[in-house]
Amino acid sequence: MAVRDPEATKARIFEAAVTEFARHGIAGARIDRIAAEAKANKQLIYAYFGNKAELFATVLERKMLDLAESVPVDPDDIEGWVDRLMDYHAAHPELLRLLFWEGLEYGTEQLPHESGRQEHYVRKVATLKDGQDRGVVTDAIPPGDLLFLLTALANWTAVVPQMRRILTGDAEEDTARLHASVKEAARRLVAR
């Protein structure tokens, strides 16, 4: 008789959900496909994660936490932070896809688990504000706006790879040049 491992099952469901939501968004994702990929029954998905919207919110929340832990904002090294952020998204393209699906689904409406997300961003903004207070980052732009602009600058290359390829080329040296350009733009954006 096989022994059930609830944690292993939850992990398989989570990974299958990441893939499914990144490919199909919230509306297009199917619990049946997640269950089949995870080799779990649908009732376990509902028992462990709630409905499909809650599962998506949980997936995105965990992925955002991984990003925050892997690539903390560093006002003392904005170019390095931007470089690490671009590398992270190149290695984990599913996160930006999940964020864009969320944007398409919710627009400007309140998000599930939004208060947790706000706390996450409050810490990042506070880190930039500290850099402003210490004089290593410009205070000409409010710190929340600055975080938004820097993140957009770093993320856009991964969000629209077709535009990146058409405008800047797709060879290895083109990618390296674009990385350098994005870091230079970030450096200028935060310069005092």
Rank of each mutant, 00 (worst) to 15 (best):
N155G: 10
L149V: 01
L146S: 06
F148P: 08
L147V: 09
K129I: 03
H179W: 02
G135T: 11
D145A: 06
G135P: 11
N155D: 15
S181A: 13
V137Q: 06
I141R: 03
F148D: 14
T157Y: 07
D133L: 10
L147E: 09
A158H: 12
V137M: 01
D133F: 04
L146W: 02
A180M: 00
A186H: 09
P142S: 01
G135M: 01
L167K: 08
L146A: 11
W156D: 14
A158I: 01
E172Y: 00
P161M: 02
T138E: 05
L146G: 12
R165D: 15
A185P: 06
D130W: 07
E184M: 04
G144F: 07
T168P: 06
G131N: 11
L153Y: 02
P161C: 03
T157S: 11
A176P: 04
R177S: 12
M163T: 03
E173A: 12
V159E: 13
A158E: 14
D130Q: 15
D133Q: 15
T168Y: 13
L150T: 09
E184F: 01
K129L: 11
F148W: 08
V182Q: 00
L146D: 05
L153Q: 03
A158V: 03
Q132E: 14
E173I: 11
L178T: 04
L149P: 05
A140G: 13
A176F: 04
Q132C: 12
E173L: 12
T157L: 05
V136P: 12
I141V: 15
A186W: 03
T151A: 11
K129R: 15
A186D: 10
V182W: 00
L178C: 00
R187P: 05
T138H: 05
L150V: 05
M163L: 07
I141C: 03
A185S: 15
P142L: 02
V182F: 03
W156H: 11
E172V: 14
V182C: 03
T175C: 06
M163N: 13
D133G: 15
A186Q: 10
V137F: 04
F148E: 15
A154Q: 05
T157I: 10
L178H: 04
L153I: 02
L146F: 05
D139K: 09
L153P: 08
R134S: 06
L147G: 07
P142G: 10
T151Y: 08
G144I: 15
A152R: 10
L146H: 09
D139L: 02
D174W: 00
I166T: 13
A186F: 06
A158T: 07
S181Q: 14
V159S: 14
A158M: 04
P142M: 02
R177P: 08
T157C: 12
W156E: 15
L167T: 13
A152S: 12
D130M: 02
R187V: 09
R165A: 15
A171T: 15
V137I: 12
A180E: 00
L147A: 14
R177I: 00
D174V: 08
R165F: 04
L178S: 06
L149K: 10
N155A: 14
R164S: 12
A140I: 00
V136I: 13
W156P: 02
L150W: 08
V182A: 05
P143Q: 03
T138F: 01
G169R: 01
L149E: 10
D139T: 03
L147P: 09
G144C: 01
